[in-house]
Design a binder for these strands. Structure first.
Lengths: 101, 101
DNA sequence: GCAATACGTAAGCGATGACTTACGGAGAAA
DNA sequence: TTTCTCCGTAAGTCATCGCTTACGTATTGC
């Protein structure tokens, strides 16, 4: 639920690929795995982490499970970045202009 | 240099703590290590990764090495997120309104 | 009930990574 | 040059992680 958890969830390349796949539209586990060079259980495990981090949502459709981007969780991550950037860039500019380390 | 490298660099908690420390102002390796429960070499190794990812800059001041946020590299990461969010949230909203997966 | 589909979970393995201690190098002061 | 400060690097250890195969579960259709 924290931004740290979200960052860690998005760091591994394969898991980020899963997430970016969902950014292009909702999909089932099998559909996602078909487009990646890893097994279906691997994708399932990545989705578990993404779901725990509140980055994706899970919906049942028969025997399928459809995953999609969790817009609310994504917004929380964006808020963190916005606040971080405001603070960091402000201090950065101030140090450059003032010359004070 | 890629956003993937930047994401991976910011994922580990200790390394993110180093980065967030620099967001509050430039500092030397020793100063950073003094505020963290890890050794100085550990901080040095984290700074190396952050520098390779173009997230921090290095400046020499006598025997010290002063590290600071790399605003340009940070902006690149922000650009990636902006583009990602625009695409993801647009598709997300469209799927909700249209009801089409 | 029986078979098929789609998926999550458990167990195990190989690789990666974060950390430590020990050491060497570059700059400042005498 | 010698000494001190501050730092990067090398080597090694222990934990974590990402992946695979094997298996169990829930749902659909006959």
């Amino acid at each position: 639920m924290t931004y740290g958890e979200k960052l860690e969830a998005l760091a591994p390349p394969t898991r980020r690929a899963v997430f970016e796949r969902l950014a292009k539209g909702a999909a089932s586990v099998g559909e996602i795995a078909a487009g990646l060079p890893v097994s279906r259980p691997a994708v399932s495990q990545h989705l578990r982490v993404l779901k725990d981090a509140a980055l994706v949502t899970e919906t049942r459709d028969g025997t399928k499970r459809v995953y999609a981007i969790d817009s609310q969780g994504l917004a929380e991550l964006r808020d963190y970045f916005d606040r971080f950037w405001d603070e960091a860039l402000d201090i950065f500019k101030r140090s450059v202009e003032g010359g004070d380390g």
